[in-house]
Design a protein around this nucleic acid. Structure first.
Lengths: 150, 150
DNA sequence: CTAGCTGCAAAGTCTTTGCCAGGAA
DNA sequence: TTCCTGGCAAAGACTTTGCAGCTAG
């Protein structure tokens, strides 16, 4: 626990974030949750320790953590529904910045192989591979932004 | 084109869907779009041919197509942000029905290997594998539902 | 004829934003 | 002191729903 606090304090300092009680409790709840919680779920947990906290604060902090890579999102496409009429097995190349999606043909992909055990009774149907990175246009924008801010 | 109409008509019949002009134009737009469009994007395209169409109709039809597997969603988690404080490389087992997410340790996974070419300039950072299927509780619910409807 | 569909508008989620008082550095 | 943050409420984006008239089967 003291360990957690020290690490968290350090991470905040490194990213220029103020160390606040709310922020610390939110982060701790995120670390403890094993089920990939929603912001609402975190809000519910945090409220047990800080009843006066607001949902807005939870959202703001989550966004902050995402910005500094102290946290990641399960899907890069939660904002809006993205559709795919290509029903043949294929995979996706996704840009972290602009969230563009490019198809990768399955024939050019050797599937991932899971060698461990699945939970009992889980019926596997298909697998989806996302190769995540930064597309050429976004990479260019980023580097030019960095230069101008130096 | 006539080919498309025949196939579409057939698919509708098979799933018990009425063949309507709106539905046909929406599906055609979905098939033609190569960029994993949002419902809004489809709405914009369809409106060129059916200016009076409503966004609600586009949503309803997309939902219908998803229900009968004539279409799939790029991410099963677009509805709400799902967070992951586990920054170590790992993968996910996802239930199509309840959308629960279970972690799979990376050490038990042999990564997918892409043997083709990435778009020029794309900087790959990591890969995410989703194994998609139906979890035990949902499978049970489904089979009992089927029995009772027989 | 009947069930299902469309268009419209209202309502519902989920998330972001603006503001000011208060706390961290 | 100065800047950042928390709480609140309003606004915003995205999606669903209810209804009345129309259409396909």
């Amino acid at each position: 626990m003291e360990d957690f606090l020290a690490v968290f304090r350090d991470r905040c300092k490194r990213h220029g974030l103020a160390f606040t009680h709310q922020r610390q409790v939110i982060y701790q709840a995120l670390l403890a949750a094993k089920d990939h919680p929603t912001p609402e779920a975190i809000y519910d947990i945090v409220r047990e320790r800080i009843p006066s906290i607001s949902l807005g604060t939870v959202y703001k902090n989550i966004k902050t953590f995402l910005d500094v890579d102290m946290l990641c999102e399960v899907s890069l496409h939660h904002g809006s529904l993205r559709l795919d009429a290509n029903l043949h097995a294929h995979h996706h190349l996704v840009c972290r910045i602009c969230r563009s999606i490019t198809d990768l043909d399955e024939s050019e992909m050797e599937p991932a192989r899971f060698t461990g055990k699945f939970p009992r009774g889980f019926r596997v149907q298909r697998q989806n591979v996302e190769i995540i990175g930064i597309c050429a246009p976004c990479a260019q924008k980023q580097s030019s932004k960095k230069q101008s801010s130096n």
